[in-house]
Amino acid sequence: MDKPLKTPPPYPIASVDHALRAATILQMEGGATVSQIAERLGVARSTAHRVLAMLVYRDFAVQDEDRVYRAGPVLELAAHSQSLVSRLRAAALPHLHRVVDLLDETTNLIVRTGETARFIASVECRQALRVGSREGMVFPAHRTTAGLLLLADLSDEDLDGVYAPERYRDRPADRPDLSRLRTELKRLRRNGFAVNRERSERGLVAVGVPVRDRDGTALAGLSVSMPSVRYDPHRLQALVTTLNATAHALERDLAEQH
């Protein structure tokens, strides 16, 4: 088994986490108000205001005349029009909440960019022992449930391009074994779902399915994450059935937007 990539720090600093998450929201979605940031972070408006003020001071954010905060010059400026990521997230959130209501496990939406997978939406469950929000976090695609599903949608030629040796000249240990990866992706294509047992984080199991556009291309991955002590392999088919039904409902909503 691959060594898990990310482990939460033993002494997390909430203020730093809030600032990083707020900056990620501005970068991915183009803009937000103090109230919207407060709601997303689960903090008071006064706390959100202080976080945003510091981001502005350090040029990670700017404030428009309409009092909307946007990504600043330090970050890659997000498009002012509604991006694909933003539309995906907005369409997916009601569906993620329904999955949490049904399964009472944290649910996520993930997209792939090159060799990385990014969590663009995450809804936590209500259980005391739960997987926390991964929204805004980035992992190597081959280590995540949804990332593997999105890699499985690539042709062999495209996969070779993503993992071209020259891209890993300075970090050869990060490049996956392509022979093993192709074998795994072939199995995922056949199954239509993926299971991640502590591959990206210790003590975490995730199950995921793809979300496709009208021509069948995988746009994102939909996953449910839970502590490994609560995962029951006998529930796998039920989890996949629920996720597939949710993915199809989201696909219909996205199709109606066009």
Rank of each mutant, 00 (worst) to 15 (best):
P10D: 10
R50I: 08
Q36E: 15
I13Q: 12
V43E: 07
R45W: 07
L41T: 11
I25S: 03
A44M: 09
P12F: 05
A44P: 01
T47S: 12
R40K: 15
Q27F: 07
R50F: 08
L26D: 06
G42M: 00
D17N: 06
V56N: 02
L26Y: 05
M54A: 13
M28F: 13
M28C: 09
V34K: 06
R21D: 06
Q27R: 15
D59S: 14
R58S: 14
P9E: 08
L52D: 04
D17E: 14
Y57G: 09
T33Q: 04
D59R: 13
M28Y: 10
A19R: 04
V43Q: 04
V51Q: 02
G31A: 08
V16P: 00
I25Q: 13
E39Q: 15
Y57H: 15
V34C: 03
V16D: 00
P10F: 11
V16L: 12
Y57K: 15
A19C: 07
E29M: 09
F60M: 10
A14W: 09
R45M: 07
Q36K: 11
S35E: 11
G42Y: 01
R45E: 14
M28T: 11
S35C: 05
R50C: 03
T24M: 11
I25V: 15
A53G: 06
V51M: 04
E29G: 07
A44N: 11
V43L: 02
L20E: 11
L20P: 00
P9L: 10
E29K: 08
V56S: 02
Q36M: 12
V43I: 09
A14K: 10
A23Y: 01
Y11N: 12
V43S: 08
Q27I: 05
L26W: 03
H49M: 10
L26V: 08
V34N: 05
G31E: 00
S35T: 15
I13D: 12
R45K: 14
A22D: 02
G42R: 06
Y11V: 13
P12Q: 04
A19F: 04
H49G: 09
T24H: 07
V16Q: 06
P10A: 14
D59P: 01
S46Q: 14
R45P: 08
G30D: 08
L52F: 10
G30T: 03
Q36H: 10
E39I: 09
A23R: 00
T47H: 03
T24K: 02
R40Y: 04
R45Q: 13
H18A: 09
P12R: 02
P12A: 07
K6N: 08
H49Q: 15
R40D: 13
S15W: 13
I37Q: 07
Y11P: 00
E29T: 12
D59C: 01
P9R: 06
M54L: 15
Q36W: 05
S46A: 13
G30Q: 09
A44I: 01
S35V: 13
V43W: 05
I25P: 00
G31N: 04
E29Y: 14
M28S: 09
L41V: 10
A44Q: 14
F60N: 05
G30A: 07
V56E: 15
V34T: 10
H18I: 00
L20Y: 02
A23T: 00
A44D: 14
H49I: 02
